[in-house]
Amino acid sequence: MIPSDAWLVVIDHQRIFADPDSEWCAPRFAETAAVVARLAAHFDDRVLLTRWLPGGKRNGSWQAYFNKWSFADRPDEDPVFDLVPSAQDLTRRPSLDVTTFGKWGPELEAVVGEYAHLVLVGVATDCCVVSTALAAADAGCTVTVVADGCAGSSDENHAAALQVMGLYDPQVTVVTSGDLLD
C-alpha cells in the first residue's frame, strides 16, 4: 500500500545509464521503465525525477573519479545526460539536477519535506540509489526501495546493494512493486 504522503523519487533515468553502448549502462535498465511508469501513475503530483550531472568542479576525490571515467567528463548540457523518453512525461515538475551520487540534500528536502517518506526507484542500485537511501534515512526520512524498479551495474551489485539497504530496516525497507501496489 502506498502511503498518501509518500513521494516517488526516480533516480537518474538518463540516457547515459540506459544506452547499451555506454560504459555506465545498467544492463536491466529497460526492465525498470515499465515498473517506474506503473508506480508513477499512483503518485499523482508526488513524482520527482533526478539527474546526475558532472558539473564543472573536480575537487578532491572527484578528480580521480573523472580520470577513471573520462568518457563522462562532458558539459552538463550533453544529450547523454538527458532523461530517457519513458521518464520525460512522468511529472510536470522539473528534474532535480545534482552533481553528487546521493540525491538527498537541501534541494530534495525543499520539495518533499524534512522527514518525508521516499519511495526510490532508478539507477544504479549500487551507486546513486544506495547513496540516496542511506543519506535520507540518516536525516530521518522513511525510505522504501522498490527492488524491481531499480537496476544495478550488474545483477550481483544490484543484489549486494539491496542487501546492504535491507540492513537499515525499519528506516529503509526493500520491497517489490507488487508488494507496494497491493
Rank of each mutant, 00 (worst) to 15 (best):
V123G: 02
A161N: 12
G60H: 09
R15P: 04
G105V: 09
G105A: 10
A110F: 13
S95Y: 01
A40G: 13
P85I: 00
D148I: 01
R28A: 14
A161E: 14
A147S: 15
C128A: 13
P27C: 00
P75W: 02
D126A: 05
A110T: 14
D45Q: 13
A30H: 00
S22L: 07
L53T: 10
F81H: 06
E77A: 04
T142G: 09
V164G: 03
F71R: 12
A37I: 08
V164M: 14
P20D: 06
V10A: 15
T32K: 00
D155H: 05
D97V: 05
A151C: 09
V174I: 15
E23R: 11
M165D: 15
D169W: 03
I16A: 10
Q63R: 15
T142R: 02
Q163M: 07
H158K: 03
V172A: 07
L96Q: 08
V123A: 12
V119C: 11
P27M: 00
Q63W: 05
F71P: 01
G178E: 13
T99E: 15
D78G: 14
A64V: 06
G149F: 06
T132M: 01
W24M: 14
V172P: 03
W62M: 14
D21Q: 14
F81R: 04
P79R: 12
D169S: 11
V80L: 15
G122P: 04
V84D: 00
V175S: 05
A72E: 00
